[in-house]
């Protein structure tokens, strides 16, 4: 029995296919999900997600979100999901730089929500960079 994996972000349906397994950053560390996994609901953390299908592994950088697993399918709702091949390292580095800069300027203004938003942005950017760097060393 294959596992049907769906990854949806507010911008688009990123992924919808049958896969052999998926490893994702859950609330309490990485979780591997194989077909016929016990029903599970957990939160998704910023990090990297690996999809294995027919011996081929695809890697993605993901943001925060929700994961729902039943035996037949896994649904991932997240605010970011980018294929490792599509990460533009330079653009991400620049975005990270900008985010860090704006974090410093906000800190004096102490607006709680803004700080949270920028922190999330930094986390997402860092996750993308880490995934890219890891790929290079392999």
């Amino acid at each position: 029995m294959p596992l049907k994996l769906e990854i949806v972000t507010p911008e688009a349906r990123i992924f919808s296919d049958e896969v052999d397994s998926v490893v994702l950053p859950g609330a309490e560390g990485e979780i591997g999900i194989l077909p016929a996994h016990a029903p599970l609901v957990t939160t998704l953390q910023v990090g990297e997600l690996r999809i294995t299908k027919g011996g081929k592994t695809t890697e993605m950088a993901v943001g925060e979100g929700l994961v729902e697993v039943t035996g037949a399918y896994a649904r991932i709702l997240t605010d970011m999901a980018i294929d490792a091949d599509q990460i533009d390292e330079k653009a991400v580095e620049q975005a990270l730089e900008r985010a860090k800069h704006s974090l410093e300027s906000i800190k004096h203004g102490e607006k709680q929500e803004d700080v949270a938003a920028v922190m999330a942005m930094i986390q997402r950017n860092t996750a993308q960079l880490q995934l890219k760097k890891k790929r290079r060393t392999v």
Partner: peptide
Amino acid sequence: PQYTFEPGAATVFETVLPQYVNGTIYQ
């Protein structure tokens, strides 16, 4: 199905529901 919640149902809902409200209003 009888879902298992990690780390716990209350924690998951506390994280997800505010996101749900914001996301839905946005849509």
